[in-house]
Design a protein around this nucleic acid. Structure first.
Length: 313
DNA sequence: CGTTAATGTACGAGAAGCGA
DNA sequence: TCGCTTCTCGTACATTAACG
């Protein structure tokens, strides 16, 4: 590589790595496709690597290109922050943020959107299906812009992502309000004897931590249905004598239809956290949205209405 | 270092051929 | 008639050449 670096070439490389297509990259860069192709030739000379291998439909990044991508984004974001100093104003900001999380967390964020629309009318929030995050390479999905923020258990995040802890999530047993089980405390034996709804955000799982713990106690349970959504589980619970395990913070918002019991076994808490990629780390828009989310979700008991004493147990 | 035009490569859809 | 294979053609996209 020569001593002089053309920053415009790096911008082209960043766009090429995002688009994996010279024609689309050229459109985004307001340039012509042959011009971008020529820039790619110069980039290949600069890095002494093919960077992007042409295929029948678009380009495939080399390992060197994949290694460069996050570092390049961070570097260029730094330059953008210098060129466009801290002028972020939510009232005039434009942009969209894609968030991957469970519907339980989506529900907990629901009350935020009214405030968001008033304070930042140009910002759109989209939720990404959990199935899109199943692929092992979460980092790649974040690098390519398929998702900007993931809210999940902290242990799920690769080391290279930026992570901000939110709160510790506890779990409760939930059943319909007029469920025939009326004792004050739920015993492990009674819990295991009931029919269960499992919420498996990725879908299709019939065993989870609860089954492992019950097995350790010499108990087993009967799971009738596994659904990917807490809202669907709640609808099922309302019309059956089934029981399920919900995040306590979600169950608190469903007290009109469901009653909650402390779990009759020691369920480990989940450390809920928010993760993002270096690509968006320095973006003022993303930083502002992340701060809003952190404020919203940093406490497990932020729902209006008061204290734990009001919970139905 | 940009543009336009020409060229090369690969894929997909549809037609044609062929055997069971 | 059906299913499979092969061929042709259109399309999409990257690269190269020529020129300013």
């Amino acid at each position: 590589m020569s001593g002089r670096v053309d920053l415009n070439l790096l911008l082209t490389l960043e766009t090429l790595l995002n688009e994996l297509n010279v024609t689309r990259a050229a459109t985004k860069l307001n340039s012509s496709q042959p011009a971008v192709s020529a820039q790619l030739v110069r980039l290949r000379r600069m890095f002494n690597d093919p960077l992007l291998i042409p295929g029948a439909r678009g380009m495939t990044p080399t390992p060197r290109a994949l290694e460069l991508a996050p570092r390049l984004s961070e570097l260029l974001d730094g330059f953008r922050a210098i060129v466009q100093p801290d002028t972020f104003d939510p009232a005039t900001a434009q942009g969209s943020i894609l968030i991957g999380t469970t519907d339980a967390t989506q529900c907990r964020m629901a009350k935020w959107f009214g405030d968001l629309a008033a304070a930042a009318p140009g910002i759109q929030i989209g939720f990404v299906s959990a199935t899109r995050l199943m692929v092992p390479d979460i980092e790649h999905h974040m690098a390519s812009g398929h998702v900007d923020i993931i809210i999940s258990r902290r242990s799920a995040f690769p080391d290279r992502l930026h992570v901000r802890p939110l709160h510790d999530e506890h779990f409760v047993a939930v059943m319909r309000w007029d469920h025939p089980y009326r004792k004050k405390q739920l015993t492990a034996k009674a819990f295991a004897a009931m029919q269960h709804v499992i919420v498996s955000p990725l879908g299709g799982e019939f065993d989870d931590t609860t089954d492992e713990i019950l097995a350790g106690m010499g108990l087993s349970r009967s799971t009738v249905v596994s659904v990917p959504s807490f809202l669907v589980a709640e609808r099922i619970l309302r019309s059956t004598d089934f029981v399920s395990v919900f995040p306590a913070s979600l169950a608190r918002g469903m007290t009109s239809s469901l009653k909650s019991y402390p779990l009759p076994y020691a369920m480990p808490k989940i450390e809920l956290a928010m993760a993002w990629h270096v690509r968006t780390n320095l973006s003022p828009l993303h930083r502002w949205v992340r701060e809003q989310i952190a404020q919203l979700l940093s406490s497990p008991w932020e729902e209006a209405g008061g204290s734990m004493a009001q919970i139905a147990w």
